[in-house]
Nucleic acid binder design. Structure first.
Lengths: 228, 228
DNA sequence: CACGGTACTTGACGGGAATCAAGGTCCGCG
DNA sequence: CGCGGACCTTGATTCCCGTCAAGTACCGTG
């Protein structure tokens, strides 16, 4: 099938799937589903029984949890070509540990848990890719737990902004916020009001300049030092 | 060697190592080191190059990070027979993502990264055990991120207390705090003062009774409902 | 172009937790 | 036994940030 070869080519470029044989890739695609969801549509809810994990092809998906009072904390923002929910592969009673919902209209592939587990059994290289991926996620979690636990809201916002800057950038840098400010606020665990005030504060101190979705960092190193 | 057989028997009971063959176990032990560290002694620092992961045999170890201002957030308290720092196995440039320090005098085994990776290559069952372990940790991280981001200090303390209670316990339960209250405070991300006041508040409401290191929960279900 | 809705901003206010400071308790040690 | 030093508790104060409320800007739509 035409689409299959397009998808196959796409998957070959993804480090999770690049070690698969032709036969394995075919098996995986045969069990996979292509899904489109509208902005605001929910993919799965926290606690749902899980049989699939996902690869985002386009759009934007948020992984989040709700507090008893209904407040939302965004755990992770998924960008195209990222996979998510792989950890359900290895649970005995697999349930999604967070909710997933589209922030923008999204197109994604849903992979079957059992099929992929079967493939893992045959391919140590793919095992290793999966484990490396999980190690990266664990690393990211440590970082997030640290910033949530240790720092105030200004620190978290600055940390987030710096995360948008290319690794070795210097001097004056312009970054574009990837989504609405409300979503970013939920991601750094502050209210939209506080985010607004924090950006204004940084702006008043001349550290950044805000204009709509674009944020100009007047000097990256100064901002980095600003958090010590 | 005598100690080797003792250690071998011990490892056989651990789910990470129970799938190994005799030969693999021998290889692993040959490359492993037995270490004793005093209370307060540091095992590794955040950012150190990593070539080993660990199994705690006795004592207590804390994994933590320091904020720029020097505040400490304890990420995880390690108890005997738990492994930690496995995620360094799969990093390209392995560095410890947190610091590790003994809270009490501790005895532990240090396993060589390369040796274990070699064994993983030969044993899918062990791969699966490692991946399951990482999935559990990821799950625990989601939970921690949620409680840190969404909940107030009282909630976090209650959550911590309930975590000490056996899964299906009911009615009146006595739990013993595993370490000093200062350490617990750093673990639930509050100051010692706030922990003290929170326990007193719960005590005044009749939900718990505190006497030194022992906390009596007057009714587990009432406390569980208390957080919704 | 007026409209309604959503996102964002700004201000006023209050509460919860950190901070600062001062006892109190428990322990090991000379 | 008296002493020093952790650890823990309690009180007073401060301040950050969430909440509530009002106002502004920016859409797409009829």
């Amino acid at each position: 099938m035409q689409t299959d070869t397009v998808l196959a080519r796409e998957l070959r470029h993804h480090y999770l799937f690049c070690a698969l044989t032709e036969a394995q890739l075919e098996r995986l695609l045969a069990s996979a589903a292509l899904r489109r969801i509208a902005a605001g549509e929910r993919l799965f809810a926290h606690g749902d029984a899980a049989t699939q994990f996902f690869l985002l092809r386009s759009g934007c998906v948020k992984l989040y949890r709700l507090s008893p009072e209904g407040n939302e904390k965004i755990m992770r923002l998924i960008r195209p070509s990222q996979t998510f929910a792989e950890s359900i592969l290895f649970m005995e009673a697999p349930r999604y540990p967070v909710s997933g919902q589209a922030v923008e209209p999204a197109q994604l592939m849903a992979f079957d848990r059992e099929t992929f587990l079967g493939i893992l059994r045959e391919s140590f290289a793919t095992c290793q890719a999966v484990m490396a991926q999980m190690a990266v996620r664990i690393q990211a979690h440590w970082d997030e737990i640290e910033t949530l636990a240790l720092q105030n809201s200004r620190y978290r916002v600055v940390h987030y902004l710096l995360g948008l800057v290319p690794r070795n950038a210097q001097g004056r840098v312009i970054v574009t916020l990837p989504t609405r400010k409300m979503v970013i606020a939920a991601h750094v665990a502050v209210t939209p009001e506080t985010l607004s005030r924090t950006l204004r504060g940084l702006s008043d101190e001349g550290l950044i300049e805000v204009s709509g979705e674009d944020v100009t960092i007047t000097d990256v190193d100064t901002l980095r030092r600003h958090m010590h």
